[in-house]
Amino acid sequence: MADKRIMTPEEKALLQAKHRQEEAEARNRKKERDARTHRLVQDGAILESIVPHIKEMDLDSLKRELMIRLRGM
């Protein structure tokens, strides 16, 4: 059977601080993901407004189309 040891107040405080830090890091990662997702959606909307037929393109075709357009600039 596992030996159940009672945590000292210092150990408990350290564990709580560690959990708070992990929660803060998780919140920051979510904020970063949400910001990236928002940016990608906006960029995609702009791209679709400029090149409406991309909705029917696969990714390789889209890359080729963009490269052709960028070379023409």
Rank of each mutant, 00 (worst) to 15 (best):
M1L: 06
A2G: 11
D3L: 14
D3M: 11
R5V: 09
I6Q: 07
I6S: 05
I6C: 04
I6F: 01
I6D: 02
I6E: 04
M7W: 03
M7I: 02
M7T: 03
T8H: 00
T8N: 08
P9T: 05
E10I: 03
E11L: 03
A13T: 10
L14S: 13
L15I: 00
L15P: 00
L15T: 00
Q16R: 08
Q16S: 06
Q16I: 09
A17C: 08
K18Y: 08
K18V: 02
H19L: 15
H19F: 13
H19R: 15
H19T: 14
H19D: 09
R20N: 08
R20I: 10
Q21F: 10
E22Y: 10
E22F: 08
E22M: 14
E23M: 15
E23Q: 15
A24W: 08
A24T: 06
A24V: 07
E25W: 09
E25N: 07
A26H: 06
R27S: 03
N28E: 15
K31I: 06
K31N: 07
E32S: 04
D34L: 13
A35Q: 15
A35N: 05
A35S: 07
A35D: 14
A35P: 01
A35F: 11
R36G: 02
R36P: 05
R36Q: 14
T37V: 13
H38S: 15
H38N: 14
R39W: 11
D43A: 14
D43Q: 13
D43P: 02
A45M: 14
A45P: 03
I46G: 10
L47Y: 03
E48G: 04
E48W: 02
S49G: 11
S49V: 04
S49E: 09
V51K: 01
V51E: 02
P52Q: 07
P52F: 02
K55H: 06
E56L: 09
E56F: 11
E56I: 09
M57W: 06
M57G: 03
D58M: 09
D58E: 13
D58N: 15
L59A: 09
L59W: 07
L59P: 02
L59G: 00
D60W: 05
D60A: 12
D60N: 12
D60S: 10
S61T: 04
S61F: 08
L62G: 00
K63H: 12
K63G: 05
K63T: 13
R64E: 14
R64W: 11
R64T: 15
E65Y: 09
L66R: 02
L66K: 04
L66N: 04
M67V: 10
M67T: 07
I68Q: 07
R69Q: 07
R71M: 12
R71A: 12
G72Q: 14
G72R: 14
M73E: 12
